Amino acid sequence: MTPNPSESSLEEFHLQVKRPVVSEKPEKIVIVYQNVLIYTAYHIFAIYGLYLTFTSVKWPTIVLGVILWTLSILGTTMGSHRLWSHRAYKATLPLQIFLMICTSIACQLTSYNWVRDHRMHHKYSDTNADPHNAKRGFFFSHFGWLLIKKHSEMKRLGETIYMDDVHSNPVLMFQKKYAIPLMGSLCFVVPVLIPMYFWNETFVNAWNFNILRFILGVHSICSINSFAHLFGSRPYDESIMPVENMGVSLVTLGEGFHNYHHSFPWDYKAGELGNHWLNFSTASIDFFAKIGWAYDLKTASGAVVEARIKRTGDGSYKQKNRIDCGNFKEKNIGL
């Protein structure tokens, strides 16, 4: 039985458990041709959807697409990432159900699979046990990892990942059990039927534009694995690959502060700056905290952040710019 980590920090628990040695031996790439065909088809539909966007798609369809893209990204950042992977805050049942619906709209694996892979990514970051190991190049870390079989080190070390909290979460297990009807309907059926029924959008327009929305969501999140591990500064820890990339924050609603996030993964803000226009995910958590749906928000104290900058930063940190993120209770953690 896997020991139960403390409520304060899942990452602190991982540090207490000796990490197995990861083999860096390269393996033969085995292409999953089914995935290649499926994603190729998605991209063809998306490209045609982009053309239709400028020629015949109605404005209400575009507005709906923007709303669904935003919900899908928030489901991933607020739910699969900060809430369920890192337990950086707690959420009431209504908020958890809402976020589960949002992750179903995104259709980027179930949250169960997302949490497992992301915990692998943090525990074995940029090694062969990392699902999207950035050391294997930009294309692999961005999208290629979805098209080939997993490295044997991922399979071997997968059992070392703590998942008891996920197994005991009825919302996540419900999504896992009914993944196909939930994600199939919320990502691919309902977004097509709504514009067709309510404002007489054509099927061709509704389908292809929705696939464009879906693919843009996939690439937005994938940019964290690629751009935010390869192009940017390391003001908090120069010894790790993750970087600060403001462009990634724009397309992910706040996930581009990646050097900070890997330095302080328990921080619900996933960035030092907190609630501001580049971190809409944090602003959304703050909103739900104010109405009582999110609570026990964890954050790294200013003193701890400053000490880390001085100890391991690359010298690019220019100015202390910490923003008060609300009047609700936060848990300052100093590790």
Rank of each mutant, 00 (worst) to 15 (best):
V115E: 14
L37C: 15
I31P: 05
I73A: 14
S301W: 06
I333P: 08
I309Q: 11
W69E: 07
D126F: 03
D126C: 12
K329M: 09
L64V: 01
S152I: 01
H261N: 04
I333W: 09
T55I: 02
H151A: 08
S168V: 11
F188T: 10
Y124E: 12
Y48K: 10
T40N: 11
F139D: 00
T103G: 14
V251G: 10
L99M: 08
G334F: 14
F143S: 03
E7N: 04
R87F: 11
V204H: 15
K331L: 14
I31Q: 07
L147V: 04
V36E: 06
Y260H: 07
P181T: 02
V171G: 07
W59K: 00
A294I: 02
K18N: 05
K269A: 05
H276P: 00
V66M: 04
Y124D: 06
V17P: 09
H219N: 01
H262T: 04
L52G: 07
N133C: 03
L253E: 08
N35F: 15
H261M: 08
T55P: 07
G247P: 02
N208D: 03
S104P: 08
E238K: 11
F264G: 08
Q16K: 08
H86W: 04
I211H: 05
S233K: 15
V17H: 06
V305M: 03
L278K: 03
N279V: 08
Y295S: 06
T127Q: 09
A129R: 05
I323Y: 05
G49R: 09
L93N: 10
H229W: 10
H122S: 06
D314T: 02
V204A: 15
G184A: 11
H86E: 03
N35E: 11
G79E: 04
F231G: 00
K318D: 05
E201A: 10
S85F: 01
W84H: 02
Y178R: 09
G326Y: 00
E7S: 04
L37R: 15
P60W: 03
I240Q: 08
I333H: 09
Y260D: 02
K18E: 10
C102A: 15
N259L: 01
L95C: 14
S152Y: 02
R156M: 00
S281G: 10
F54T: 05
G247F: 03
P131N: 07
K320Q: 13
L212Q: 01
S316W: 02
L250Y: 12
R116E: 15
Q96F: 11
P191F: 07
K176E: 13
A179V: 07
I161T: 02
H118E: 12
W114H: 08
V166K: 04
Q34E: 14
D130N: 14
A91H: 00
H43P: 14
H122G: 06
G75I: 08
M100Q: 09
L273S: 14
Q108I: 06
G49Y: 05
E244V: 12
F203D: 07
S80Y: 06
H258W: 01
F280G: 10
P191K: 01
K18P: 10
